[in-house]
Structures are given as C-alpha cells and as structure tokens.
Design a protein around this nucleic acid. Structure first.
Length: 277
DNA sequence: ACGAGAACCTGTTTGC
DNA sequence: TGCAAACAGGTTCTCG
C-alpha cells in the first residue's frame, strides 16, 4: 500500500491519539510478519509512554519513554486501525498486533500479505539500524535536490523509473509516485538513469517534491488498501496524471497522446510516449 | 558490481 | 457461472 505520503498521513492520524499516551496492553496475535516480531515485544512496550512519532522514508518511528523506539513498516497491504475507546473493538482477520492505550483506544496493525514489519531499537541506534542505514535522503528535506539526484543517477544504467524506486537514491518513493513524478517532469520511465541531463535532473527532483507534497495534502492515495487510522480515505488518486490510466488521453495540454502501461523490473509503469522523453 | 527476476503472502480483479 | 491467471502503494535474495 503505502509510499511516503501514505505513511506520513498515517502518522499524522496517529499523533493526536497516541502522543503522551501510555501503552497499557500489547497483544501479538501473529509472531512472524516479514520478520519475526522481536522477543518480548509486548512486555518491553507495556507500561511505556509514547513521546512522539516521526517518519523516515516509508518507516514510522514511535519514540517511547526511556529511549526505546518502535519501528514499523506497512509493506504493501499494511494498515493501522484506530478504534476509539467509546467504540466496540473486535479483532479482525490479519490484525497481527493490537495496542491499547491508557485512555482505552485500540490500535490494530493489520496486514494481509505480511510484507510489513515491526522492530524495537534503542533511540541512539536508529540511524545505524540495518533497515535505515542505507537509505538516501528524504525527498522533502534539504539534502535532496537536482545535484544530489544527478550524482546518484550518473553511473546507473538501469531505467530511470527503476532508479527512483531504489531507496538508496531517494527514500520514500514507490511505484505510484515514481511514475507520477516522471510524468510531471516529462521524462520517459524507460530512459537510462545516466542519460537524464543535469537540467532535467533538477526538474525531476522538483517534480518528486511537488508530487509528494500534493499527495500528503490530499491524505495519500486510496486504491485498495490505504486508509487513514480513523478510516478516512486519501484522495490523491483523483489527481493521477498517468498511474492506472492506460488507454486514457494524456492530460498535458495540447499533447493528444495516450497513456500506456509497460512493465519494468516486474512492476507496472505508466507514461505518455508523446510528451515523456 | 550491477541489474533483472523470483520470492515472500493474501486478496481481488480479469479473462477465457 | 466458474476457475485460473494476473495483478497489487515493498523489499530482499539469488542468479547471470
């Protein structure tokens, strides 16, 4: 499901209900997701207070009192469902972990495909965590611009679309927003990464920023899995220029092209052959 | 060393 | 209608 905007949206939905709350009960209903749930996961969290929640790439980081950090990733199908204290809670199929806060809210980590994961890490070790250490810069941060992108692309012979999905190049893009950013920048997903000229690298970096920023403003994209913790849907999917639009007309003014779907590195890419070169 | 493809899972949609 | 194949917002391992 989730790329950077969806994870950001989920975290923003959690904060009002979780910040400052003590976790009074944690239940692990399935012990193995993409990786095994850490030993003593529930015991290490129970009784501890949530200080604040941050995001790195597609990972959520729940900073707990005492310097412990709960790291989570939603994989393809993961969601977090927040059930307020005054509503009845029944565990659903694929609710793998359930958290209960001191004010009685229940938070279910639900993930049908189990590509998601959770881990516990000391806050001093977050940056060196194996899953986080190799990540490239945050696309919405200061370290990401055309110069950085150009430097990371110049030796890559893979298609630019595949390079954008490489989390070491830029952290947080996924299959939807890679296609969308290339459409905004007028670059074909098939172009070799090393053949994107410097001027266009800057334009691409700007397109990445813009697409992600707008998607966050829209609450992410709800296609099949993504919902906010309170059940609200994202609506950025209505602003897609190319994703899922094979056979439909290109939206670039006066272009007249037709969007096509191709497969690259096993993943669908969408683009307009007329205005993306 | 790099890149393509397979594998990991389950649920839903598509096509014969 | 029914069943099988294809496909899905991700990551990581293997193989050439």
């Amino acid at each position: 499901m989730p790329e950077l905007p969806e994870v950001e949206t989920v975290i923003r939905g959690l904060r009002p209900r979780l910040d400052g709350q003590r976790l009074v009960e944690v239940t692990v209903r399935r012990a193995v997701l993409r990786k095994p749930v850490p030993e003593n996961f529930a015991r290490r969290l129970e009784g501890r207070r949530v200080r604040f929640i941050t995001r790195r790439a597609k990972y959520g980081l729940v900073h707990m009192a005492g310097g412990l950090v709960l790291l989570f990733h939603l994989g393809m199908s993961g969601r977090l469902r927040l059930v307020p204290a005054d509503k009845a809670f029944t565990p659903e199929r694929h609710d793998h972990i359930v958290f209960v806060t001191e004010q009685g809210d229940r938070l279910a980590f639900n993930d049908a495909r189990r590509f998601g994961l959770v881990d516990l890490v000391d806050e001093d070790d977050v940056a060196s965590h194996p899953l986080l250490a190799g990540l490239g810069p945050e696309p919405l941060g200061n370290a990401f611009d055309g110069a950085h992108l150009g430097a990371r692309l110049k030796n890559r012979r893979t298609p630019i679309k595949a390079a954008l999905l490489d989390q070491r190049v830029v952290a947080g893009l996924g299959n939807i927003y890679a296609s969308e950013a290339l459409a905004c920048a007028g670059i074909s997903p098939r172009r070799g990464a090393h053949r994107v000229a410097p001027a266009r690298t800057a334009r691409l970096a700007e397109a990445v920023r813009q697409v992600l920023t707008r998607a966050i403003e829209a609450g992410g994209s709800s296609l099949r899995d993504h919902i906010q913790p309170d059940g609200a849907l994202g609506y950025f999917q209505h602003q897609f220029r190319v994703y899922g639009r094979a056979g439909a007309p290109c939206l670039t003014p006066a272009c007249g092209g037709t969007i096509v779907r191709i497969v690259q590195a096993g993943r669908a890419s969408f683009y307009c052959p007329a205005c993306q070169r």
